[in-house]
Write a protein that binds this DNA or RNA. Structure first.
Lengths: 146, 146
DNA sequence: TCCGTGTTTTGAGTCATTCAAAACAGCGGT
DNA sequence: ACCGCTGTTTTGAATGACTCAAAACACGGA
């Protein structure tokens, strides 16, 4: 598989590798996430609908939930926003969210392996991951509004 | 009303200090949060309804939202769960959530002042806070289910 | 090509939350 | 102590994000 420039094949391969059947809409969902690395189900549906006219929002939800179960996508949920999906699952990275416009950027984890942080007092919990969300104002919001 | 230990007075004072009118239901909301430090609007309503029979869920939402605006309570929203409210607002602390039962514990921030962490690459954002959520299995869930 | 099981479609339902207008009640002033 | 202004609560409806379920459909192994 040397074709680094055919995302369609890549998407199909990834889906199949997860033990899921390859369908037009699933391929389109993966491609949409390639295009928009942090998209909501609605946004993905809007993109998918352009190339797969007969599709439904429900299919997108189905696909995303199957993908998440299979470890093919990761779901994040910044407070007060709909859930967002991303293809970057292999590493333990964090997110930077604009508290004004909701823009999302990836932030590399300096530690790497989860949990990258451990609480001072774990209260007896078996801690698996530390989810870090940085909130701030993005450059374009800083430039426009005060 | 001679008791120095009645949380009711304390609640009233706190509400008034935030520039808000003191009402029976608002006092009851603050008291409920004293009783349950990480409660959803629904849970708070259930507690409040015991002492203030005529109240409504909407009033609880109103009160919580006014309190949050006034900085009297903090709202957190662990992914996949309804919003939770807490009275502990003065310090920058984090949360430990049981991924099985949803139990929440406070975790002291080792740094103190927000943002306690800064991203390696801030992408030009003016970062204000770093929200850290630790996910794990609480002792009682670990004891029961595998 | 055919069949079985996984996937999509369609349509309805749920939960948490918000919006809006009218009735009500703190509390500062008189 | 009362009044009235304005903030608060009530009531009822509406929204957004998401889930559930059953029937139609299609991928891909035989």
């Amino acid at each position: 598989m040397t074709s680094l420039e055919t995302p369609v094949l890549d998407a199909a391969a990834r889906i199949r590798a997860s033990g899921l059947r390859v369908t037009e809409s699933r391929r389109a969902v993966v491609d949409a996430l390639g295009e928009r690395p942090h998209a909501s189900a609605d946004e993905i549906f809007a993109i998918v609908a352009r190339s797969v006219p007969g599709t439904s929002l429900q299919s997108v939800y189905n696909a995303l939930s199957d993908f998440a179960d299979a470890g093919l996508v990761r779901r994040i949920e910044p407070a007060g926003r709909p859930g967002l999906f991303e293809l970057r699952v292999a590493d333990n990275h964090h997110h930077l969210v604009c508290s004004r416009c909701g823009a999302v950027e990836d932030v590399d984890c300096v530690v790497g392996a989860p949990p990258c942080l451990t609480p001072a007092d774990a209260h007896g919990y078996a801690v698996q991951v530390a989810e870090v969300t940085f909130w701030g104002i993005c450059p374009s919001c800083a430039a426009s509004g005060s």
